[in-house]
């Protein structure tokens, strides 16, 4: 059916329109549907804060895991997560930006570019737990990194790569073509144009994408569980080859224990996780707004 065709069932459209009240009820139903996930999140947050807020204190933030919920803390998980996410960003951002620059600025339209593009959009749809299996066989076993921070960070980097690539490509596309042509006309090489003209203008977009990627990496538990992140760690990582725990792993462990005290710990851990994510997302929104203002949109 092409766009200009009249609807096939047009004869049924005429006839008495339903009453105003019915329309209003439908509109209300639609609004309710739009608000439902927000309501659920509000209930979730309320519940978590009510259960866990009282548990957050200095002891909780600076203690290692323990058999007794009252003395357990998130130190190992939180420090592990900071290491993990820092390493992930250090690996994924350069590779992701490089890929985006290649596809937008260098690649000729052809079979290779199409192959890479199809690949990236397919990778974005692969369940995160499959990345865990990939990391387990490739990094932990084949490249014999063991169940180390580096293996975890490499796995998470592959997982978030499509996010960074897509955000960066979008940012690169907003840079006007005329600026590139002006640079080339002045005798600059392609790389000089990219590095001194195009990339600086795309920085806010790259930052937004990187922050989104990082917040995805912070909350991921499934691939790390498969990879063999530890749940009981009473030391801090001393390098990239160290075994590790992570905040989501710690929360998952507490959630799956039957004693009520651990559910309280899980709620407290979730508060820490959500506050971190909220701050990161806030930062992403602010950078995006600044970018839009600067580009005059």
């Amino acid at each position: 059916m092409s766009v200009v065709d009249p609807p096939r069932n047009s004869s049924r459209i005429s006839g008495r329109p339903p009453s105003r009240a019915l329309e209003r009820a439908f509109r209300g139903l639609c609004l309710f549907a739009a608000l439902l996930p927000v309501l659920v999140l509000a209930v979730l947050l309320f519940d978590v804060v009510r259960t866990g807020l009282g548990r957050i204190d200095v002891q909780f933030l600076t203690s290692f895991p323990s058999r007794r919920p009252q003395t357990a803390g998130i130190l190992a998980g939180a420090v592990g997560s900071v290491w993990l996410v820092g390493l992930t960003a250090a690996i994924a951002v350069p590779v992701g930006v490089g890929t985006a620059v290649y596809l937008e600025e260098y690649a000729r339209r052809g079979r290779l570019a199409t192959l890479i593009e199809i690949n990236i959009s397919n990778l974005a749809g692969v369940p995160s737990i499959i990345y865990g299996l990939l990391g387990l066989e490739l990094f932990v076993r084949a490249l014999s990194m063991g169940r180390s921070l580096l293996a975890g960070a490499l796995t998470l980097a592959l997982l978030v790569l499509p996010i960074i690539i897509m955000a960066t490509r979008e940012a690169l596309r907003t840079v006007p073509l005329a600026l590139r042509e002006a640079g080339l006309a002045l005798g600059a090489t392609q790389w000089q144009v990219v590095r001194q003209v195009v990339l600086p203008m795309a920085v806010p977009g790259v930052l937004t994408g990187s922050i989104l990627a990082i917040s995805r990496a912070i909350g991921e538990a499934a691939p790390l569980v498969v990879l063999g992140a530890l749940t009981y760690v009473d030391f801090l990582p001393d390098g990239v080859t160290s075994p590790f725990s992570a905040l989501p792993i710690q929360i998952f462990n507490w959630t799956s224990r039957p004693q009520a005290g651990f559910a309280v710990n899980a709620a407290a851990g979730i508060i820490v996780l959500m506050v971190t994510l909220l701050m990161l997302n806030g930062a992403a929104i602010i950078t995006r707004n600044r970018m839009q203002k600067r580009l005059g949109r």
């Binding site: 978590v48 909350g219 709620a267 959500m274 997302n281």
Partner: peptide
């Protein structure tokens, strides 16, 4: 207002939803 709020929801870790399903 609604569109960015819904986007924000997509950023909640699924682990948190799991806790909600089991405990609440």
């Amino acid at each position: 207002i609604l569109k960015p709020t819904l986007e924000l929801l997509a950023g909640v870790p699924t682990l948190v939803y799991g806790y909600f399903a089991l405990v609440t």
